[in-house]
Amino acid sequence: MATAAIESHDPHAGAHPATSTGLNNTKIAIWAFIGSECFFFASLISTYLIYKGRSLVGPFPHEAWTDPSTHQVFKAILNIPITSVSTFVLLMSSLAMVLAHSAVVRGDRKSSKIWLASTALLGATFLGFQAYEFTSFVHEGLTIHTNLFGSSFFILTGFHGAHVTAGVIWLLTLLFIDIKRGLTPDEAINVDVCALYWHFVDVVWIAIFTLVYLIK
């Protein structure tokens, strides 16, 4: 009897450990976390939108601005072509993520490593684009101190970037485990949970891309 109890208690015993609902604990927790994150980003996005068009000085996101005292001209600061590319990169990382998950489910060790690595790489590429964007904005005269747009833009996209960074670290950890000892199909739930987080970060970007970059 005791052995049976121990076996069923082992978290690695099966892909679907027995719980009240038959669902995985961590997966419920991550969905609750995602629900909570909705409020986090809703607050950040609300602030961005509330302060939209209220900055007293430029540079502005969508229109040029001439400094009345120095007559220096600042062009509209958002770089839509570059950001469209980085948006595409992040969307593709989501594709790589689902492929990584399904490879782990199938027990396909080779593909799982490739796709986990690609997801992390695409995420890192997105971060690279963001780093480029931030530095070029600073060169063009927009910092978190400049105006309301600068504060709310950098903090909103910065927090999103921080989430991507955490996701990349998470992915690299999974990749490391996969390389070291291989992720078994039983552990697919761990990849699934990471994937849910990753896709959520992606959908947040879908909202930010439209609300911040495209709507003038």
């Binding site: 609902t21 669902l23 997966k27 419920i28 969905w31 609750a32 995602i34 629900g35 909570s36 909705c38 409020f39």
Partner: peptide
């Protein structure tokens, strides 16, 4: 359940 946990919030 997951739908409820996400769509409600």
């Amino acid at each position: 359940l997951f739908r409820a946990l996400f769509i409600g919030p």
